[in-house]
């Protein structure tokens, strides 16, 4: 298949995904399971990464602000802006593309090669709708929460880094994070997160659903899914930034 054919097949897949669930009761059950698998189980890694990235941004900014004419509160300001605008939505999404994306591709791919998807289709169940729609809804609901958490923890991580390294004072940092708060930036970050979350699930599910062969092909599909999801996220990040902030 050419890349153009893959893009076409991806959109045809979306048409099948966004159909009315065959049984709402089963859909709600699956949705709660997916929120647990794809959302709650990512809390730890998101909190860990958010906290330390915030710390690193604060330290790097502090080390690069050595002119006495630049106020120290800019360290807090830069940490807050970086976390909200870029590190929380994009960096966390790329990490989740690896963690959640590979999980989705390998679980759907294994179902494909072990004929579990055939078993669904023979019963007359739309396998894409059954398997993918609850995942899409779960991440669209939960990932903004994860990214907002990463923003808070990143800013907290920056403050903790300052205390531990003595590179800046708490008062300066707090003044910085209170300076020029623009709520639109949070909205921008959430819009990006929703788009990236959609890409993570659908691109990974596409790669899993079309696997043919055995375990080796499932592994290859997972790698491909992570690479393509990351590429699409980076490209969309550029265009969304241009559209929403440019």
């Amino acid at each position: 298949m050419t890349n153009l054919e893959h893009i076409g097949a991806y959109f045809l897949m979306l048409k099948e995904v966004f159909k009315k669930p065959q049984k709402w009761k089963v859909f709600w059950e699956l949705l709660s399971r997916e929120i647990d698998d794809l959302g709650l189980k990512s809390l730890g890694i998101v909190a860990f990464i958010g906290f330390f990235v915030g710390g690193v941004v604060a330290i790097q900014t502090a080390l690069n602000v050595d002119s006495p004419f630049i106020p120290k509160y800019l360290i807090g300001f830069a940490t807050k802006r970086s976390m909200i605008l870029e590190f929380a939505p994009t960096f966390i999404s790329v990490i989740l593309a690896g963690k959640v994306g590979s999980y989705i591709t390998s679980s759907i791919g294994t179902m494909r090669v072990t004929e579990q998807i055939d078993a669904l289709e023979i019963m007359g169940i739309n396998s894409l709708n059954y398997l993918v729609l609850p995942k899409v809804v779960a991440v669209l609901f939960f990932y903004p929460i994860l990214v907002i958490l990463a923003m808070f923890l990143g800013i907290l991580g920056g403050w903790v880094a300052g205390i531990l390294t003595d590179l800046f004072f708490t008062e300066d940092y707090i003044t910085g994070i209170q300076l020029e708060f623009n709520p639109y930036f949070v909205k921008y970050a959430i819009i990006k997160t929703l788009v990236f979350a959609f890409v993570i699930v659908t691109v990974s599910a596409y790669h899993g659903h079309k696997v043919q062969g055995g375990a080796l092909e499932v592994g290859r599909a997972s790698t491909k899914a992570v690479v393509w999801t990351s590429v699409v996220i980076i490209l969309l990040n550029y265009f969304l930034t241009q559209m929403l902030l440019g």
Partner: peptide
Amino acid sequence: RKEIGMVFQGSALYDSMTVEENVMFPLKMF
């Protein structure tokens, strides 16, 4: 398709479900 039962070569049981849930699945759906 609802009138068809299929036994696959590798059984094709849903890994994430117990025996009871696997057998109950068509009942739940239909």
